[in-house]
């Protein structure tokens, strides 16, 4: 696993995702076990994290161990990618088997462009 993707727990969500997104875009991946689409996403997610090293942060959170946060955010599927910037959720969530590496990249790029503007 890439060291650029940080595994967090729900206790760290405020600091590592919400507050961290005030300075840089943050992407959060909800994943589960027994989830082939999650397995498929992992290497793509790592690759995108590497591409944006130093510019955006990438975190992941294990759903089974962090049910309360999943519930609070209304996440009911794995994988789910949620994007944060300026201390709140922004843009469209991505989910399921068809998350493309190029689509994640494009969304992060648009968040970076919005910050620069």
């Amino acid at each position: 696993m890439s060291q650029l993707v940080k595994e967090i727990t729900q206790a760290e969500f405020e600091a590592e995702v919400v507050r961290a997104s005030e300075s840089q875009p943050v992407v959060l991946d909800f994943y589960s076990t027994d989830c082939p689409p999650c397995e498929a996403l992992a290497p793509k997610y790592d690759a995108v994290a590497e591409q944006f090293a130093g510019k955006a942060r990438f975190a992941k959170i294990f759903r089974q161990g962090n049910r309360d946060l999943a519930q609070k955010l209304g996440v009911t599927g794995s994988p789910t990618l949620i994007f944060f910037a300026g201390g709140r959720e922004v843009g469209e969530r991505m989910g399921g088997e068809d998350i493309r590496r190029t689509a994640i990249k494009a969304q992060v790029e648009s968040l970076l462009a919005a910050r620069a503007a």
Binding site: C35, T76, R93
Partner: peptide, 17 residues
């Protein structure tokens, strides 16, 4: 509501319910 209650994969998302 995709991923917020609607799913197309039972093995992936069944445990959420």
């Amino acid at each position: 509501f995709k991923g917020r209650g609607i799913s197309y994969c039972a093995t992936c998302d069944g445990a959420y319910f």
